[in-house]
């Protein structure tokens, strides 16, 4: 294998991996903060791409501005769906509600939300498949290694978003409360903090991350009504590989799956996906909690 090919495969792996990481960080924040396994996450990702399309292509805004706006819009959509659906649902739960019942009902509610978002987007934007022409069409050509600038920008933006997220989670009071809520909401309530709005922010933050992932990927991939259904399986898989509740694990899992897919397609062909799935199951046999997570009930 030539060094050029190796670099190219690494860049491919980083691009797809960074999108998985953004998606899964969102899923994880929602899952740990609000105890919701969010099946509508793929639809939020799709919606993010469509919102970016609207701002960037129809309203001719700057790409960075359009991206920020799509993140903000999705945060709003997330907050509204939490207030409209999950907040009402969580009023039904009491201390004696079993964990599996909570998980199941909130997952099913998110399936309902998914159906509505999916078909709603389809009706609003039509069945035609869309896309945007990349604002960074240049190709970086160094010694015969060709790398599209779009990919570099995507990797860079993902790193930026991750750094911003970690700053928020670890350096601000708000982030500390959020992390505390994911461990023990009762204890946080006892500190005199209104956890309700923390739950709302968790869901909004997770949705915004999905929206940003969808927005970032729009110049690289196409924007279609089915894009959300395809990515959600992979996101769940990365969530498991990395381990639920570990940011480092999520990043390691996203990169690992990205590398496996990139190198797998090169050397095994289309069947690589199946190998990745089987490998994940094998990993889970030996480490039930994922690579860096802890096995929890």
């Amino acid at each position: 294998m030539s060094p050029g090919l190796f670099i190219q495969l690494i860049v491919n792996a980083l691009t797809i991996g960074s999108i998985y990481i953004l998606m899964v960080l969102g899923l994880d924040i929602i899952l740990r903060g609000t105890k919701i396994l969010n099946f509508a996450h793929g639809q939020l990702y799709m919606l993010g791409a469509y919102v970016l399309l609207l701002f960037f292509q129809t309203l001719n805004l700057n790409f960075a501005l359009a991206l920020i706006l799509s993140g903000a819009t999705l945060a709003l959509v997330g907050a509204l769906s939490y207030l409209g659906v999950f907040a009402v649902l969580s009023r039904r739960f009491t201390v004696s509600t079993t964990f599996s019942y909570r998980l199941l009902l909130s997952a099913m509610a998110s399936v309902g939300l998914m159906m509505i978002l999916q078909q709603g987007t389809l009706l609003c934007f039509g069945t035609q498949e869309r896309g945007i022409l990349s604002p960074f069409p240049q190709i970086i050509d160094v010694f015969g290694v060709r790398i599209s600038l779009t990919r570099v920008v995507i990797i860079f933006l993902s790193i930026l978003i991750c750094i911003g997220l970690f700053f928020l989670m670890y350096k601000t009071r708000f982030g500390k409360i959020m992390r505390a809520v994911s461990y023990d909401p009762e204890a946080v309530t006892l500190q005199g903090i209104n956890t309700f709005w923390i739950f709302v922010s968790c869901f909004a933050l997770g949705s915004a991350l999905a929206g940003l992932a969808g927005g970032i990927i729009a110049p690289l991939f196409s924007v279609t009504p089915s894009m959300g259904q395809n990515i959600i399986f992979m996101s769940f898989l990365v969530l498991l590989v990395g381990g639920i509740g570990s940011y480092r694990g999520t990043i390691a899992g996203g990169l690992l799956v990205g590398l496996l897919l990139s190198f797998g397609f090169q050397f095994l062909g289309g069947i690589a996906e199946l190998f990745v799935f089987i490998l994940v199951i094998v990993i889970l046999v030996f480490r039930p909690g994922g690579l860096l997570g802890e096995a929890t009930e």
Binding site: T15, F221, N230, L261, Q266
Partner: peptide, 17 residues
């Protein structure tokens, strides 16, 4: 003959190949 999974969006790995 190169085959890609039906819902593929990222064709860069195949293009590299």
């Amino acid at each position: 003959n190169i085959f890609y999974p039906r819902d593929t969006q990222d064709f860069a790995p195949f293009a590299t190949k």
